[in-house]
Design a protein around this nucleic acid. Structure first.
Length: 356
DNA sequence: TCAATTTGACCACT
DNA sequence: AGTGGTCAAATTGA
């Protein structure tokens, strides 16, 4: 998805501001998960707002501000697979761009070592983050010193590569300019079904089925993201797919950096155009999504091995590095999500991100 | 013992 | 020949 428009604010400043807001949003979403739901019995007008409602209202304003920023800055950017905003300029991986479209005909693969280069032709999704944590469980399979770079590059693949054939990979490297941050490049997509997403999906779907009113909201915790959708809106839009699948589609779209056509289109994970950004902005009050694979699951991330700071927090051993840092099967209670109709949230016109 | 990380070697590609 | 990406044996730690 892309934010792009005209304005006088430097792109990097808007990008920094939006990223700050994203972090605030993530923090609020996590805090929100610890709060009890608002009382259902009484109207909010007859009592002081509870903490959850105040937080919902704060979140609404925050999302409104983000939408405004994203749509007014003199920038072009996108929300990446982790729900972080990055400018389009830094989203391009020169190597990948150069190789895209390159024919692989005539190549033969070796027996051992070197590995397949098949991923080079795939689209990449580059981001800068202060943490390596992104909600997925990765297994490190290599590290390399890179020419003209003071920091090594680490190579990870999805921990579910073997058991589920998930082809997602990522490369991480400390930013040269700002060693407290990491350049993270994602290749491929997660095809795995991690329990941390399966569990809330099932619960949310059950909740959605149980609440059948016209204004009930549908919450989808489909793999890679969370969607809050208003079923009546989807019906008005003539959505032919089921609301759940539409929500899932949008969820994937939100995190997929891609988009052709100037980056204004919202694409599903399969690359199918779903809607345009301005369409999404118009509909944001009714169909909303949060950052995909947000970095809020689990504890502190593994650190990059730069020779002195130590590598992955786990450093081998047991679940270390993988499940130790990113619990692949967090309990539902730790996910901080709320299920059921959101009728108690008055301002459903604003999107509320649950961030499992 | 098992699973994850480390690290040297191999291989594709420029 | 140099560089980057991956493999897989060795190592590590719970």
């Amino acid at each position: 998805m892309a934010f792009s428009s005209e304005g006088g604010v430097p792109a990097e400043r808007v990008a920094a501001a939006v990223n700050d807001l994203v972090e605030v949003r993530d923090g609020l979403a996590r805090l929100r998960g610890f709060l009890p739901p608002p009382p259902q019995a009484e109207q909010s007008s007859s009592r002081p707002p509870c903490a959850a409602e105040l937080m919902d209202a704060t979140m609404s304003k925050l999302m409104s501000a983000m939408a405004t920023l994203g749509g007014s800055g003199d920038i072009a950017g996108e929300v990446d697979a982790a729900g972080r905003w990055t400018s389009v300029a830094e989203s391009a991986d020169p190597m990948v761009v150069r190789r895209e479209g390159e024919s692989s005909a005539g190549r033969t693969r070796r027996r051992r070592g070197g590995g397949s280069r098949s991923g080079r032709g795939r689209s990449s999704n580059k981001r800068v983050a202060a943490t390596l944590e992104d909600g997925h469980v990765w297994r490190k399979y290599g590290q390399k010193d890179i020419q003209n770079s003071p920091y090594p590059r680490s190579y990870y693949r999805c921990t579910h590569k073997l058991d589920q054939g998930c082809g997602a990979r990522r490369q991480t490297q400390r930013c040269e300019a700002d060693p407290s941050n990491y350049d993270i490049t994602y290749y491929g997509e997660h095809t795995c079904r991690d329990p941390s997403t399966i569990i809330p999906t099932a619960i949310a779907n059950a909740a959605g089925a149980a609440s059948d009113g016209p204004n009930n909201n549908i919450i989808s915790f489909a793999t890679g993201g969370v969607v809050v959708a208003n079923s009546s809106r989807l019906a008005r839009e003539g959505t032919t797919a089921t609301t759940t699948s539409a929500a899932t589609q949008l969820s994937s779209s939100w995190g997929t950096s891609g988009g052709g056509g100037g980056g204004d289109d919202v694409f599903s994970s399969s690359g199918e155009r779903f809607m345009q950004w301005d369409e999404l902005a118009a509909a944001v009050g009714h169909v909303s999504s949060v950052g995909v694979t947000s970095s809020t699951v689990g504890s502190a991330p593994a650190a990059e091995n730069d020779g002195g700071n130590g590598d992955t927090a786990a450093g081998g051993g047991g679940d270390g590095g993988g499940a130790g840092s990113f619990p692949s099967s967090p309990s539902a209670g730790s996910l901080g999500f709320v299920v059921g109709p959101l009728g108690s949230i008055e301002d459903v016109d604003d999107f509320f991100p649950f961030d499992p």
